[in-house]
Design a protein around this nucleic acid. Structure first.
Lengths: 377, 377
DNA sequence: ACGTTTTCAGGAAACGTTTCCAAGAACGTA
DNA sequence: TACGTTCTTGGAAACGTTTCCTGAAAACGT
């Protein structure tokens, strides 16, 4: 349906030549040849010479260290500005005793997916408060790609690492941590020495939601799950299975479809379930896209008001559909914030030798209608 | 409505102590004092000594430069691995002739917003192909914050910069570019010497959509616009105004609401319009959230099937609502990809002295129903 | 007024790498 | 065999900074 009624509109493509104003700037040094404009950048040494002070003094001023005569501070600041001096953090961190680069890295599943990107933003905000920048990359759930990213990041000597681990890289993360770079894992639990984690309470959130469906009278509850390689997917299934077991109900294999990784897959599976005999009276979709896919199938069959649906993980405008989609919502921002604080704590050095800490953030059930539909008699 | 029926579920908070397995690894160097474990990292010099070759040779091997005896290559690679040597890109780029850090930076409005994050992903993919990493930051439409970010990035000597400019930082970007760092601006047009841009065809996209509404018979078409400081918001308004002018229709001030920056603001404004006399028969919402807000107001009034609505910028599940929301969709991935290619081109050095290039990517109208509602007689 | 401590400033070494350069080995040619 | 070339190799300098250390001057106590 989305691919219908499309039209392409060509752009106007205005071409702007650019002015090319040449402004006066740069060292304009004393002895060097003035021949070609080689654009060597202004260094501390240039500032020192120009200001008539020592190199060490410039360094002290730039870093705001105490114990420099106010007059010199003024002169250095002044000439630095005049010469257009730009501090080089790269060289700085190389020499600096703590080797800090004021940069941390973030390995996400996909910077463009809402969960990842909201988490990213939370990390950015926490880091910004300490003037730390964030390098981000997408692993796409591929352990090799994750390894490459971690590698590339550590080669750049980032101060710390926050990873949403695929689960097959524990040794590498352990090595990185042991080599001196703090590591925090987010969203998925791993058990690595001194690697903190922060995860969402997937199991209990799912458990409680399924229990609700049962309380409404549902017995045939379908389960749609994400790739089984993902820790969260397994946890959510565990919640579903737990709630069924708790009620003395055996899990019906035909109602359980794990290892789905697209809305389309979920739609197809759900359509199949609805068409077959003895269809489910409720569906639990354990991930965003799966929820959307399942709902699409329900709408296609015109059954969205008869079959209950609960999704794991909220998404925009889920409340504007009719009926609204009830979800177990998680709080990616809180996950990111917590992970960042754990990491920054270790960076500050106090918690250096602490064993791994594991933080779990709770979920919240949001009732919007689709989860409150009773089974048809 | 979304805030209803919430319940908090406490986590189980499983505490896992962490095993503390000590594995054998590391330099285990020859002559140094073995006292405290000071964890100095393994350097090229260590590898050179251990392998019995010169420092320069190790460098050549690590960088895959030709002209080293196969035997030595083997020996160096071998000992590097054995010692757990990790190349230091920081030191490398300091000394390297081209000073490349293999890192580019991205200044977005907000890494968590869908447009920004999809663009981010496209940039990441293009950069990855050349083993380049991406630093990202959110300006939140604040020129000061944008300046801070650009500053922090250039201090880290990134090779290039892609910016969604707020519009008040032209001088700084010009300075950065002149200092030798290629800059590309995305999503908003700026005219700075040798700074490429890639923008979406906001004006024409809007124009054509409004023209469609008119063709359906609509005359009173409301316009909801984003913050007027944003270039795209002004362009979209220009498209609206153009289409109205083209039809000889004067723009009615009461129907035009610019400078809105939240779904809630759009909802309130739309509700007001619907309640007042002579309400619009169609609404054009010039941004994502505004579209959602407007639709919310229409649903609140039960008018979503009587009043036409077209939004600028697509969003997930817009097609699952009833009626589906018609939009002028843009392609953030293509914007990102284009920007990245422009930047990488300049990085490769060929296009160094080329004047600014301006690329415009087209929009696409997607008909889903809400834009196809004729005016009520 | 003198000796001692404290403060401030600058020269030089170092961070881990790449690149320049010179020297030796290997090779082909006369 | 002698000689010019080419190919490999390693030592040393350099990248832009921070930090160590020394020395001079100022401040202090008696």
């Amino acid at each position: 349906m989305p691919g219908k009624g499309e039209e392409e509109m060509p752009g106007s493509g205005a071409e702007v030549p650019g002015e090319g104003v040449e402004r006066e700037a740069g060292p304009a040094g004393g002895s060097g040849p003035v021949g070609r404009s080689v654009r060597r950048s202004v260094t501390m040494r240039d500032v020192a010479r120009q200001a008539g002070v020592g190199l060490a003094t410039v360094s002290r001023v730039i870093n705001g260290k105490p114990g420099v005569a106010p007059e010199l501070v003024r002169r250095v600041t002044e000439t630095a500005r005049a010469l257009g001096y730009r501090h080089d953090v790269t060289a700085s961190s190389l020499r600096r005793a703590d080797r800090r680069t004021a940069t941390i890295a973030l390995v996400l599943e996909d910077v463009a997916n809402p969960f990842s990107s909201v988490l990213h933003r939370a990390v950015e905000d926490a880091a910004r408060a300490e003037d730390i920048l964030v390098l981000a990359g997408s692993s796409d759930e591929d352990p090799d790609r994750e390894r490459e990213l971690v590698d590339a990041f550590t080669m750049r000597r980032v101060d710390g690492l926050i990873v949403l681990p695929t689960g097959s890289t524990d040794e590498q993360l352990d090595a990185v941590r042991r080599q001196g770079t703090p590591v925090v894992c987010a969203d998925r639990l791993v058990e690595i020495d001194r690697v903190d984690t922060v995860t969402v309470d997937n199991r209990d959130g799912t458990w409680a939601a399924v229990r609700r469906l049962r309380a409404l009278g549902h017995r045939r509850i379908a389960f749609l799950g994400d790739l089984d390689a993902i820790w969260t997917a397994r946890q959510r299934y565990a919640g579903y299975a737990g709630a069924q077991a708790e009620a003395g109900e055996a899990v019906e294999d035909r109602l359980v479809h794990r290892d789905l990784h697209s809305a389309e897959a979920a739609r197809a599976v759900t359509a199949g379930l609805l068409a077959a005999g003895d269809p489910p009276t409720a569906v639990f979709a354990a991930q965003n896209l799966l929820t959307i896919g399942a709902r699409r199938a329900l709408q296609d069959a015109g059954r969205q008001d008869q079959v209950a649906l609960i999704g794991f993980d909220d998404f925009p405008v889920a409340d504007m559909l009719a009926p609204g989609i009830s979800v177990v919502s998680q709080d990616p921002a809180r996950v990111g914030r917590t992970a960042a604080h754990l990491l920054l704590g270790r960076l500050r050095g106090g918690d250096d030798d602490l064993p791994a800490r594991h933080s779990v953030v709770p979920t919240r059930y949001i009732a919007r209608g689709s989860g409150e539909i009773p089974p048809e008699r």
